[in-house]
Structure formats: structure tokens, C-alpha cells
Design a protein around this nucleic acid. Structure first.
Lengths: 349, 349
DNA sequence: TTGTATGCGTTATCAG
DNA sequence: CTGATAACGCATACAA
């Protein structure tokens, strides 16, 4: 309970000056072997531990990363990215503060503010909720990394190529003989915080579906498409939404034999709808998800377009820590991967 | 970028002393209304932001919580608890450092060390990996909270009453007419870091199964039980383990009509095994899981004994922050809840 | 009502 | 090889 020992206590016990103590702690300056021994002994005896608060102040460097998470709870995606961030951060001797905003821009603003007050070395937004918060961070002059959405200039960006993944998934379905392929997912039309003309995650996924169909000479019929703002992983997209969309699709004008679903969470709901109707996957319907969060746990195990979640986090940290010229902002684009499991099968006639 | 402005810059710009500036910042001491206006203007003009590193040093209080997580990624349980911790922490003006140990005791030890160096105000172990690490933290003299396992004395503890939840689940199954009820789950026999005679999470769950059966005059037959170290949520308990256990159970001497499964993750695997065999849930087999992590997403939606995950995190923070006498360590025990969904049904004859 | 001085625990610079 | 000493940015006790 009493205050932790300081360098001063160590100095007193080993009868040397403060300067000498820090010399042995950092192993830099020259110290007589006998003196070093005495000091090391004193460090052990006192149970001394460097006070990072003092050190950080002195060095004006906290070796700390502030990680803003959109919603760690709704979608395992965030937890995985957070893990990657942490892992890479620790490898570089940094610690990470986490700030969960649950999709709310005001909380995100608070997070940025306290991170700035805490003098974190850099800030990572794993999917920024509001553009102005990223700008706020950028203006503070520290390295900022934005994941999955380029919300502001003046920051590094980690992107994932969802389009190619979607195309691969479509090709797989087409190869299996499917011609009526539906799509369920987030609304690509809603306004996202973005600064460039790049496609959002949702847009890329739908585009992959559409182009896959068109290149095969098939019509990307609106009857096969079910998108909506509440089908996005950022909202409370519980399975319920996916189930609803699947029911709607099955009751629609064109009956698909396969469906590409914009997230594993929605696919989970879709699977429930199918089960409730007594439809078998993949015999009666093939399904491919996105993300690879829940996929392996679902019944049947879901084929999905996997995102390199850990690597996203790692890349973000590398960008944050990497020395770079002023005004030299990088974009890292990682690829997605089609994982085949048990939810797809050949078209039955 | 240039260094952030300090209190000194504000003082210079508004032509007052440092003391006056802090007075308006803290709104405590007496300040002339006109002076206050000038200082506030200067704060805005400079974009001044309190430097928490300096403040923390001065006050020797970081208002920071170190949260050690067993494995945030394997089981959504940890992410949910982390969310509760964060939420409550922010409500009390604290920020939280996260340290993920992925089940490894050495990493946990590192985490404790760096938290101590960073002078966190308190440490929370959401399921400690090794007893000595908790002891280490306790000896540093700061408030320590351990979740789900009492690994050491001298620390607060947040427990969940899994036993009653398991009993309730059993009662539900019995009420539906089931008599042959199996159990799949983590090994209650392995040595956990614990200091008291309390039952571990796994022990409570199995005990609930056993006692439920016995009180109904039924035999808790070993043929109906499948437990093993790799069936615990702490290991890489992928669905595969749950599937294996279910297959094994179905191929065993006694065929259950219902199974209580020690975690949603294992239940997910069990569901896959059933599906693969063409068995319908709940018509051919009733299933109840534990945790309420994946449950709502599974097919069919899984009935489960839900843990109050967020509340666990909140309670942990409250214990950590609550002023308490020296040597006065509290234990908060939260209850679990049976959530009924679509995986249980009446016994078919 | 305002200003000055001191210390929180380190690290780094400069002498000795 | 070792020891004073200043400074990091802030908060506070004490003066004015």
C-alpha cells in the first residue's frame, strides 16, 4: 500500500547517486562492476519498478496506442482486429488503450479527446464513425490510421479488397452450376464517412455480386437483391435481419438456388430461416458469407469470404509506428480469401 | 508536428500566471470574471489540452484500469466483459489498458509488469491464467479484481452462480419429459488456479447436471457424460471438439434425447454433428448451451444458460474503484439466466 | 484576486 | 567512473 519505491530509494540503499542508478537501469553509461552489483541488489531488495508516468513525461513519449473500436461486441471482427493491434503493439513495446464507441459519434469524439489528453503516440480507428473525429485526431499532429474506411486525408489507411473476394465467391457458385444467385447485405447506398471515390465495403461486395453475374451473361435482377441499412454489420444486425431478408427473398419473384450474404452474422440469420422452412443447406440452397467471424461455428459450417482480421490490426500498428515523412500517408490493401466449408454444393435439378 | 501547447503558453497568451490558468481550468480558486474570460479565450486560441501524463505524475494517480484478458478472441465472452469494464470505467472517468494473454501465463506476467510500471490504478483479471500473477498484482498494493476464478486472496472477486443456472436448465429438460440427458463440457477435474474450496465454473456446470438428474431419481450415468480438458472454453475449443463429443455420445452405450452443453461454442459443434447425421433439433434431440455468446446466431437458435457478461465487467470495475478498508475484500456473485429459444422441445416417443 | 515556488520520478547534460 | 542539477507539465501551499 505504501508508495512504490523510487529511484531515490534505490540510490539511498546502494549509496550512490540517482544518476548512477539510471545508468545501471538503462545499461548505458559506464558503471564499475562492483557498483553495478550493489545497485542491482538494491533494485531487487526494494522491488523497484520504473515509473512510466514519470519517464513518459520526461521523454514526452508514451509508447501508447489509442484504439477506437466501432463496436467490439456486435461483430467478432472488431475483437480480432483489436487482437492484431495489441499483438503488434506489444511487439514494439507499446501498450494500447481501448475505447469502444458502440457506433456513436459523440462517444468517438470523447475517445479522441481523452486519447489526446493522455498523449497517446498514435490513434487507430477501426472503422471511424464520424469523419470529423478522424480530422480532429489528424490535426493534433500524431500518426492516425483508419481501418476499412478512408474517412479523412492526412492519415494512413488499411483497406481490404472485398471486391475480388466477392468475385471469387461468385465464380465458385457459378462453377457449381448456379444461375439464380441472390445477394443479402448492407446498403451500399447510405452515406459513409469517406473522402475519396473508393467503394465502401458494402459497395464492393454488391459490386462483386453484380459483376460476377453480368460477366456470366446473367442479369443482376433486383428481385434477387435484398439490401438495407439495417443489414449492415455496424447496426444491431442480429440474425433476425438476415432471417427476415432470406424469407423475403424466398417469397419473392425469383427463387435463387444460392445466395451471397454480406456478413456471417446475416448469414447466420439466413441459415435459421432456411432451417425453419425445412430447406437443406447446401442441397436446397447454397450460401456464402463474408468476414469469417461466425462462419466456422454455424450449421452447416459456412463457406465465407474471409477477412485477414489479425493482419489488419497488425498492419495498422505498423503504419502508426513506422517513421514516415510529413505528408507521406500510406494505404495498405489486404486481400480477402474464399474459405470453402459445407454450405455450398452443386446445383440440383 | 510542433509540441502541444502547455499551460505556460496559455498563461503567456493571456498574460497571467500559471496558477491562474489552472484555477480557471479546475474552476476552483477565485478568478476575476474578466481574467477568466481572457484565459478561456487563450485556451481556445492555443488549442490547449491538459497533459494527463504530467497531471498523473503530479497527482500520483492515473485513473487508469489495466484489464488482463484470458483470450479475447476464442470466446465472445471476453469481449462482452471487456465492454462492461470499459463502459463502467468511462463512467468513472477512467481509461482502460487491455492486455491479451491468449491463455499464456508468461504473457500474463508481462502484462502485470507493464501495468505496474504504468502505474495503473487497479488491475482486473478476466480469468487469471496463473495464480502467481494475481499474487504479484496484489503485492503491488493496488486494488485487484479477479473474475470467475478466485486465484488468490487479497483481491476482490466477481463470480457467477453457474450451478443454479445449470439446475434450471436441467429442470426445463426434465419438465419436457426428457430422462436420458447427456452432458458435454470442460473437464472439471483439471487443476485451476484457485485458492478456495469453491467449485470452478466447469465443476458447477457438471454438478448442476448431475444433481438435476439425481434429484429426479435418475442416474448420472458416465455413459451420458463427455468431459475433457480440450472441451473447455479456454483452450482452442473449436466447434470441432463439440462435434466430436456429440458423435461420441451418439455412438455410446446410452442414447440421450437431450444434452446440456458446457458452452455455446461446444454446442455449435454439437449442432453441426447432429445436422451431419440428419438429426433434427429439437425434434430428435434437445440442446441447451452455456454463456449466451453464439447462442442466438446458431441454427436453430440455441436455448442457453446466459451469463451476465456486461454486468460482470461493470461489477469488476465497481469493486476496483470502490473505496474499501484495507483487508476488506469483497465477492460479488451474479446469477445466470436460462434463455429459451428454439433448441429444446418435448420428448418424442 | 493573483503570483511564486516546490515537487511528482525520470532522464540527460555537464562537471568532476 | 560518478555526482549534481535542470527540465518534462502540472497542481498546490504559501505569499503578496
Amino acid at each position: 500500500m505504501s508508495r512504490p519505491p523510487t529511484i531515490k530509494d534505490v540510490a539511498a540503499l546502494s549509496e550512490v547517486s540517482l544518476a548512477t542508478v539510471t545508468r545501471v537501469i538503462h545499461g548505458n553509461g559506464p558503471v564499475a562492476v562492483e557498483t553495478r552489483r550493489r545497485v542491482e541488489q538494491a533494485i531487487r531488495d526494494t522491488g523497484y519498478r520504473v515509473n512510466f508516468v514519470a519517464r513518459d513525461l520526461r521523454l514526452s513519449d508514451t509508447r501508447t496506442i489509442g484504439h477506437i473500436l466501432h463496436a467490439i461486441t456486435q461483430n467478432p471482427f472488431f475483437a480480432e482486429v483489436a487482437l492484431g493491434v495489441e499483438d503488434e503493439a506489444h511487439a514494439h513495446g507499446h501498450n494500447v488503450f481501448i475505447y469502444n464507441v458502440q457506433g456513436r459519434a459523440e462517444r468517438e469524439a470523447e475517445g479522441v479527446k481523452t486519447f489526446l489528453n493522455r498523449r497517446v503516440s498514435s490513434i487507430i480507428f477501426t472503422t471511424a464513425a464520424a469523419q470529423e473525429n478522424v480530422v480532429q485526431a489528424v490535426e493534433a499532429g500524431l500518426p492516425v490510421v483508419q481501418v476499412e474506411r478512408r474517412a479523412a486525408v492526412g492519415a494512413h489507411t488499411v483497406l481490404v479488397d472485398n471486391y475480388t473476394g466477392a468475385r471469387r465467391a461468385m465464380q465458385h457458385l457459378l462453377d457449381l452450376g448456379h444461375r439464380m444467385i441472390g445477394y443479402i447485405g448492407g446498403d451500399p447506398g447510405r452515406s459513409d464517412p469517406r473522402v475519396s471515390g473508393e467503394l465502401t465495403v458494402e459497395e464492393q461486395r454488391v459490386a462483386g455480386w453484380r459483376d460476377g453475374l453480368r460477366d456470366a451473361g446473367l442479369a443482376a435482377d433486383a428481385d434477387l437483391l435484398r439490401v438495407g441499412p439495417y443489414l449492415s454489420f455496424e447496426h444491431d444486425a442480429f440474425g433476425g435481419e438476415g432471417a427476415r431478408a432470406m424469407h423475403d427473398l424466398l417469397d419473392g419473384g425469383k427463387l435463387p438456388t444460392a445466395v451471397l450474404v454480406g456478413s456471417d452474422i446475416l448469414a447466420a440469420g439466413a441459415l435459421q430461416a432456411l432451417y425453419a422452412r425445412g430447406l437443406h443447406v447446401p442441397d436446397d440452397m447454397s450460401l456464402i458469407g463474408f468476414d469469417d467471424t461466425l462462419a466456422a461455428h454455424l450449421t452447416p459450417a459456412l463457406s465465407t469470404v474471409a477477412l485477414p482480421m489479425r493482419e489488419i490490426g497488425r498492419a495498422a500498428v505498423r503504419l502508426a509506428l513506422e517513421p514516415h515523412e510529413d505528408g507521406d500517408f500510406k494505404t495498405v490493401t489486404l486481400s480477402s480469401d474464399l474459405y470453402l466449408r459445407h454450405s455450398t454444393g452443386p446445383l440440383r435439378r
